[in-house]
Amino acid sequence: MKRPFLQSTLRELRLVVKAPRLWATFAAVVLIFWVTGPYGSAERLAVVPRLGFWLVLHAITWAIAIVSAVLANGLLRERVASGFVRMMIGAAVASLPIGLVTTAIGSATFSATPTAPGVMADIATGLFLSLLFCALTWMTMNTESMLELNGAGATATASDESGNRTSGDPVPNKDTGGIPLLLRLKPANRGLPLHLTVSDHYTEVTTTGGRELILLRFADALSELGPVPGLQVHRSHWVADAYVARLVRDNGRMTLLLGDGTEVPVSRTYAAAVRLRWG
């Protein structure tokens, strides 16, 4: 595998395991299984061993489901548009190892001999649990997206003749309430967007408040800019009107000099729009 893929996968895993809500949900599920004692565990295990059994079983199965879902999210990124569908595919694949692990732990705990019907039943149960864990993981990774849908809502954008995203003329309010993208940033970095650029599977967002790397496809980030005046100038760069210092031409090659001194390349696809806007 390529190193950038491994790096992005590890970052996504860290994002998941650092989420307090996921751990709270995990603890609640383990508590429910411990207290209710399903699958005969209440009759066959004392209170403390039963807690240990369900804690170990859920820790391993959740880990398998989450790792599989995050791996599928990265591997299928170019083939499947929906992140949720990508992760659910990974969760479905994880049902097989989850079922086998469940069988192994159950057999070792209860001194039982595995049978083919029992293994198939554990795999079927593993499929249900894996999909459930994946759904919880997805909600954990997209809490801010849910806030945007419930609060900020959608904002209209305009397109140029070639279908590339451009912004309209209206200038957002100083409170930046019309820019859904900002809800993904830390409060200290929430200001008017100035520059967006691709970094692996992430988007680096520069605002008047600061700079931050977020787990979001570039196209999705552009769709959340709201009415900020600016233009996509390259497949990996979007710049705001207010951040462009001047257009630089050098032997037919065009770049934009930004307010912080950075030079951004202009691709041929966007050259005409750039000349019209800043030339």
Rank of each mutant, 00 (worst) to 15 (best):
P4S: 08
P4R: 14
T9S: 11
L10R: 12
R11D: 10
R11T: 12
E12V: 11
E12K: 14
L13S: 05
L15S: 14
V16T: 15
V17L: 15
P20E: 08
R21N: 13
W23E: 09
A24M: 13
A28W: 09
G40I: 04
S41A: 00
A46M: 11
A46E: 15
A46N: 09
P49D: 00
R50N: 05
L51K: 06
L51S: 00
G52Y: 08
F53S: 05
V56D: 05
T61A: 06
L71E: 08
N73K: 13
N73Q: 14
G74E: 15
E78G: 09
S82C: 06
F84L: 14
V85W: 13
R86G: 00
R86S: 02
M87S: 02
M88P: 03
I89G: 02
V93C: 03
S95V: 07
L96M: 10
L96C: 05
P97S: 00
P97K: 02
T103D: 07
A104I: 12
A104S: 08
G106R: 07
S107F: 01
S107C: 14
A108C: 00
P114H: 06
G118P: 04
V119E: 05
A121I: 09
A121M: 13
F128Y: 14
L129Q: 11
S130N: 04
S130P: 05
L132I: 08
W138S: 06
T140C: 09
T143P: 09
T143K: 14
E144N: 14
E144G: 07
E144W: 14
S145N: 14
M146R: 13
A152R: 15
A154S: 13
T155K: 15
S162T: 12
G163C: 00
N164L: 11
T166K: 13
G168I: 12
D169Q: 14
P170G: 02
P172H: 03
N173E: 13
D175A: 11
L185R: 02
P187H: 08
A188N: 11
R190Y: 05
G191T: 06
L196A: 00
V198M: 14
S199W: 11
E204Y: 06
E204V: 15
T206L: 11
T207Q: 05
T207H: 00
G209S: 01
G209T: 03
G210Y: 01
E212Y: 00
I214E: 03
A219N: 14
L222W: 01
L222M: 07
S223N: 13
S223E: 13
E224Y: 04
E224W: 06
L225R: 08
P227W: 08
V228N: 02
V228G: 06
V228E: 02
P229A: 03
P229L: 05
L231P: 04
V233E: 01
H234N: 03
H234G: 01
R235V: 08
W238G: 01
W238T: 05
V239L: 05
A240N: 06
A242V: 15
V244N: 03
V244Y: 04
R246M: 11
L247I: 07
L247S: 04
D250P: 06
G252V: 11
M254V: 15
L256M: 08
L257N: 11
D260Q: 10
T269W: 07
A271H: 10
A271F: 07
A272P: 01
R275Y: 03
